[in-house]
């Protein structure tokens, strides 16, 4: 029987919802236990949140000053130790999990399965390659611990509320390096919904034309209560910050509504929105590839159409 350890992602004392998505993937393995590991300088509040996720058997905490920031070099040796006795170690496929999980896998001397989108059996998974243009079925060696990152857009968050898993501190003997040090996190402060978990997302592309023009996207998004995203071209051109990039090398998202405005629809962008419920495209070029995947397409100038949309709301 499988025993799964999930590495909790958190920031500012709060659990990231990506963790509950990893729990869904773990449930699909039909394991005997699903334990969540919280590494932090102050794990208690985070652990309490994790304990409420349905399906979680136990929450383990490692509270150490060194765990104040998510440095892979510091966390990985602790996770490698904690992994003893588990058949699987899962982390969300966010920048946190992508940074950390391969370091854990290498310490354990095992391969890693990246971006699990489907669980076929305890050691058989589906994952995308070539920017999502092919989906492969991979079999992990049953003699090894499976280290995997979970493609969050493929999994709903496991329900939170009813669960009441026990919380246990875990003591781990591991010498931690000090060769890697956290300096600071520059966070774009915004009252908008979080791009990765929002049910609606409005994204702007190069067609928006400038940083100033991007206000039209923000204003419209605020009117409909949406998070704001962007294409790589928009981020590269400096219209908006990097954390807004959607796509193969940005965020992979699955909102109920995705509106692509002034975005052509390059495969690297589309791979980030494939799992969206409804895709709307607004583009002045009727031949733009984005229309191939859009549920609703509207051809025209965004500067004329967005005010009209706001009117029609």
């Amino acid at each position: 029987m499988s025993k799964i350890l999930i590495i909790a992602e958190h920031l500012g004392g709060k659990l990231n919802s990506a963790t509950a998505r990893a729990v869904s993937a773990a449930i699909a393995v039909k394991p005997e236990t699903i334990d969540v590991l919280v590494l932090s300088d102050a794990p208690d509040a985070i652990a309490a949140e994790a304990a409420r996720i349905e399906g979680v058997s136990k929450v383990l905490t490692v509270g150490r000053a060194e765990n104040a920031h998510p440095l892979a070099a510091v966390l990985a040796p602790q996770i490698a130790k904690a992994a003893a006795g588990y058949s699987h170690v899962f982390a969300p496929s966010t920048t946190f999990g992508k940074d950390l999980a391969p370091r854990v896998a290498a310490l354990l001397g095992v391969a890693q399965v990246s971006d699990v989108m489907n669980v076929e059996a305890s050691h058989t998974f589906k994952r995308p390659i070539y920017a999502g243009n092919a989906i492969i079925t991979v079999e992990a060696n049953p003699a090894h611990t499976v280290v995997a990152t979970i493609r969050t857009a493929s999994w709903p968050a496991a329900a939170t509320g009813a669960g009441s898993a026990p919380i246990e501190p875990l003591s781990i003997e591991a010498t931690l390096p000090n060769h890697t040090r956290f300096v600071e996190l520059q966070q774009g402060s915004s009252d908008r919904p979080d791009l990765q978990s929002a049910s609606k997302v409005v994204s702007g592309g190069r067609g928006v034309g400038s940083k100033e023009n991007f206000d039209i996207i923000y204003t419209f998004a605020d009117k409909i209560g949406a998070a704001v995203g962007a294409s790589r071209a928009a981020v590269d051109a400096g219209y908006c910050p990097n954390e807004m990039q959607v796509g193969q090398t940005g965020k992979i998202i699955a909102p109920e509504l995705y509106m692509a405005i002034g975005i052509s629809g390059a495969i690297q962008h589309l791979t980030g929105i494939k799992d969206a419920g409804t895709i709307v495209a607004i583009n002045k070029d009727g031949e733009a590839p984005i229309f191939e995947v859009a549920d609703f397409g509207l051809v025209g100038d965004l500067f004329k159409l967005i005010p009209e949309l706001e009117q029609a709301l």
């Binding site: 095992v110 391969a111 399965v113 058989t124 995308p128 999502g132 243009n133 092919a134 989906i135 492969i136 079925t137 991979v138 079999e139 992990a140 060696n141 090894h144 509504l257 494939k274 409804t278 895709i279 709307v280 229309f291 191939e292 995947v293 859009a294 549920d295 609703f296 397409g297 509207l298 051809v299 159409l305 009209e308 949309l309 009117q311 029609a312 709301l313």
Partner: peptide
Amino acid sequence: DHLKTTHYAPPAKRSKGVMVKDAAELVAAL
């Protein structure tokens, strides 16, 4: 080989949707 790839498949295709004629029609549809 640490991981064995046993099968390759094309991704699920999204079907092409409809074109709407103006903003009002789009808002109504949504």
